[in-house]
Amino acid sequence: MEIAKALNPEQALRDAHPAALVGVKTFRDELTLVIDPAHIVTVAEFMRNTPGLLFNYLSDISAVDYYPEDTRPGRFGISYHIYSMLYNRRIRLKVFLQDEEPTVDTVTGVWSAANWLEREIYDMMGITFTGHPDLRRLLMPEDWDGHPHRRDYPLGYETVQFSFNAEDIMKHKPFAKE
């Protein structure tokens, strides 16, 4: 079987879907392609199926919350780390989402591995993935309020007990009964 020559992902995407590519960045040899959120599924399919690219393995989807800074195009960023077994390289697709009702299309149709990774982001960051087959909370209890990994969600710090305040805390601690 003839193996297609490896393509430059940036150039290939620029040629095929010029509207989808918003920006390009390289940091420590990691290529990041910033994608328009409306085109993420098209780009994902293109990256997975085009000979010369064949990013057939989804390593990770990570979401990051840029609250409260607003120098970036949106409050939330989602990074798709995709890997090509054949050409042994990894790139990052990145989308930025706005603060109000952050929504992006799901890529579960392209890589099944995205299923739980997107559920985790829905749970932890409150980003909705339209078209996801099973969008429920994953890690937190189903009746939980809020999305813990947002930067404006408190860590939930309880006062640490030292000898000077131990008695005071012990008075209020809700000890279990038999």
Binding site: M140, P148, Y153, L155, G156, F175, A176, K177
Partner: peptide
């Protein structure tokens, strides 16, 4: 016993809040 290093939203600060 007391929550340990995880003083955060997810962890109960000591199982003695649930069972003796």
């Amino acid at each position: 016993s007391c929550g340990g290093v995880y003083n955060n939203y997810a962890i109960v600060q000591g199982v003695d809040e649930i069972i003796p």
